[in-house]
């Protein structure tokens, strides 16, 4: 806020001139970028399809209703696979994420110049790539099936879990660790008594949180052949079996809601 004098009167301005200029410049550049982006999108869009969209949507909608309820009996097994991909994938990820997190946290890393950068690299590279891409890759390498999906979920979750966990490790109260160290405890005893109790709530919270996300992600892994209910979705889409598609989508929606409810309950119980 600036008060300047103009014609002998004091004028109140909300911001000073330089700040105003910068904000206008940012706004202008931002708008230009957006307009350019919009043109790019519209250039690669067949607008005839766009105007036709409501009719197509209505058409698909009418074909998809009512869902083919009896198809549910074929879905139990893929649903079970989906659950397993999410759960086992999360467990596998945690087993790898815990050591990585300890190696990445400044206060527990065995070597700040060699091991820590490696751990951080693992975290960044596994986190930046979506599980669907990992699945795509693993299907090419080890073949289609639940195993590829499970490993894809596990790899994607390592970085996510390890990042949150190492931040929790860096925030622990060092005095408690010091007190255990002063009793003559060994390195691993310090870990078990001084550090682990402090990060347990974070670890539990992260696991449940990630499990919830993993269940959502594992519902679509089948699209690239990595097992679970997505496989049925892909099949039904390819054969344009819309009543089946709508049922699958309903089942996925229900699974997501249930997993969200479970994870909220578990988190409530832990914290």
């Amino acid at each position: 806020m600036v008060v300047s004098t103009k014609n002998g009167l004091k004028v109140w301005q909300r911001r000073d001139r330089k700040y105003q200029l910068i904000s206008w410049a940012v706004l202008l550049i931002g708008t230009a970028i957006f307009v350019w982006c919009w043109q790019e999108i519209s250039r690669s869009t067949t607008w005839a399809f766009f105007w036709d969209a409501p009719r197509i949507a209505a058409d698909i909608g009418s074909r998809a209703m009512p869902p083919r309820w009896e198809y549910i009996f074929t879905l139990w097994e893929p649903l079970w696979d989906t659950l397993n991909i999410a759960t086992l994938g999360t467990i596998l990820a945690l087993m790898m994420a815990v050591p990585v997190a300890f190696a990445a946290a400044r206060n527990t890393t065995p070597s700040a110049y060699f091991i820590r950068p490696v751990a951080l690299l693992i975290i960044v590279s596994t986190r930046s790539i979506n599980s669907l891409i990992w699945a795509l890759l693993l299907v090419k390498i080890i073949g289609p099936g639940v195993m590829a999906g499970l490993i894809a979920i596990a790899i994607r979750s390592i970085g996510f879990c390890a990042k949150l966990l190492y931040e929790a490790i860096e925030e622990i109260d060092e005095k408690q660790v010091e007190a255990i160290e002063a009793t003559g405890a060994g390195r691993w005893q310090i870990m078990v008594y001084g550090i682990l109790p402090q990060i347990m709530p974070a670890l539990a919270g992260i696991s449940v949180f990630r499990w919830d996300i993993n269940l959502r992600e594992s519902t679509v892994l089948g699209l690239v052949g990595a097992g679970g209910i997505g496989l049925q979705l892909q099949g039904s889409l390819n054969t344009l079996a819309w009543p089946q598609v709508s049922l699958i989508l309903l089942v996925i929606l229900a699974a997501v809601l249930v997993s969200e409810w479970v994870s909220a309950k578990v988190r409530g119980a832990i914290i």
């Binding site: 109260d173 005095k175 408690q176 010091e178 007190a179 255990i180 002063a182 009793t183 008594y193 001084g194 109790p197 402090q198 347990m200 709530p201």
Partner: peptide, 13 residues
Amino acid sequence: GMIFQEYALVERL
């Protein structure tokens, strides 16, 4: 044996 200013007990044990 060491005794600390802010007790330094492991709170969650």
